[in-house]
Design a protein around this nucleic acid. Sequence first.
RNA 1: GGCUCCGUAGCUCAACCGGAUAGAGCACCGGCCUUCUAAGCCGGGGGUUGCAGGUUCGAGUCCUGCCGGAGUCACCA
Length: 584
Amino acid sequence: MNLFFNVRKRIISCIDKLAASEAIPHGLALDNIAVEPPRDAAHGDVATNAAMVLAKPAAMAPRDLAEKLGRLLEEFDEVESADIAGPGFINIHLRLPFWHQCLGDILDLKNRFGESTIGEGKKVNIEYVSANPTGPLHIGHARGAVFGDVLASLLTKAGYDVTREYYINDAGAQVDALARSAFLRYREVLGYEIGQIEEGLYPGAYLKPVGQILAKKYKEKFENSSESEWLAPVRNVAIDEMMKLIRSDLAKLGVEPDIFTSERALVDSGEVVACLNDLDSRGLIYEGVLDPPKGKKLDEWEPRPQTLFKAVEFGDDIDRALKKFDGTWTYFAGDIAYHRDKFNRGFSYQIDVWGADHGGYIKRVQSAVKAVTDNQATLDVKICQLVKLLDNGKPIKMSKRSGNFVTLRALVDEVGKDIVRFIMLTRKNDAPLDFDLSSVTAQSRDNPVWYVQYAHARCNSLSRMIARQMPGLDITYSSLKASKFELLTEKSEIDLIKLMAGWPRLIEASAIAKEPHRIAFYLNDLASAFHSLWTQGKESPSLRFMIEDEPELTRARVALVCALQMVIASGLELLGIKPLEEMR
RNA sequence: GGCUCCGUAGCUCAACCGGAUAGAGCACCGGCCUUCUAAGCCGGGGGUUGCAGGUUCGAGUCCUGCCGGAGUCACCA
């Protein structure tokens, strides 16, 4: 399905032939042979460095080897020419019928076009968002949510068996602070004056409904009781309510994790203790004193003995604490157990999506994963950089402390989920992203969402036009599939097919690199090629899609547009975006 | 100071696990609307890929050292 993969097979068969004829040695390493589109389309459809890679081990001059390979490649029907260029590249031009066949394949496969098997059904766990259950999600979470969700779709399309997971940090001091904040709201409902909410608690109004739920559930039960009595029950209610809130925020964005795992449940079930006992039995835990960090902040440093994990043995910079001063587990201790738990659930391939502020935590967790799975698991961590929210070029100020920050919900209500999703993927994940509220809804070339949707809608507008102007022409799906593709001979038409033919390769490359943003960029390219072709019809009537006295040519061109629409739609589908049928 | 990420056209960014003459958009200049949505398209100028070395047939991409920016730095999550 991936044409570059197919050409690669051809090339390797040619290498085998050369080896069989003793022209080159047997068993040369083929791993470094690249088969890819040349940067400059004038160089051909497919280029390979095979001759350059093999030249040295074959003890031949690259160009001589290229010559031999090229001649053999030209024996294949679909190969028009195989030219030698530069230091020994082989540039392959494919014949028109090959591209016409591609178009037919796309129409046959519909939105399954682009599916790949490189994942080989391997289980992958993608953990993303994983925000503290202490309040509504904000705009920064939106990026991680979209990134993780689309990465999951992408890997699914590439043949992996993907599980989307959300880790609930419901065991630390933060949720105790949440409980205390909710308790204040509870007292507020009971008629007490709560005054200024103290530093360190959550002042947001979103906890008022939780206060009411508590009041309804417990009446005056905790009115005069001590914290040790009310903390746990209030905390449970508050966490439940926050998770409901978070789940509905995510759902608004079209994000629905497959499973939610609770940190507290891991602690309560003894998983954390079991995990650390295991490390301890292997001599990887000790009581020790860390050196102070070099450079800054020397003043507040006090050397203290702590329970430490030998992270250095597994690649981290220093050993890491497992217990806090009060004797409870650190977040890290829970995280070790959590990643081990994922491994025990069958995920030897794990991906975590984190915010930029957690970058310093990567080595630590990776070292733990190595230790705890005996190097049997791979953990990739993808970092999403900050999102800067702007309005007409001016930054919108946000402060989480005051409870005054732009929520994900408010953002989605303002511009819509599809736009949020697309814009979040208009930058590489590790680059900062500007999100300008005023420009993302603009209907112009510089708004990529609009531009891609417009291309999709334009495809429909062609069908409508045909129905009106050429009512006798059958452009049902089955008729389009049977149309005469050989009538498509214009360069720009074939170029469009070539671009579409690159979709499977793009999926695979994006999946390997774990870079879903490439899909958004590709869709932009596709849209651009189509808009260009469309406008060419203005100047050259022969290039129009609809030509009334040439029904067969028109049908073939509609088939081309139909295929394009399918590819755009399946790309948008991958991004979790609904393609628009018409622009309004 | 340690670690991580980033540094590409005036601006915002691409560049497919090392490939050929580094590409788009915006802005600027010049064209294209009785005709499928001009909400668009075409053309032009614009670069020592932060600097200096190294690895090799070949480096924006890999390695080392600097410069500049962001994040982070026992015990929080």
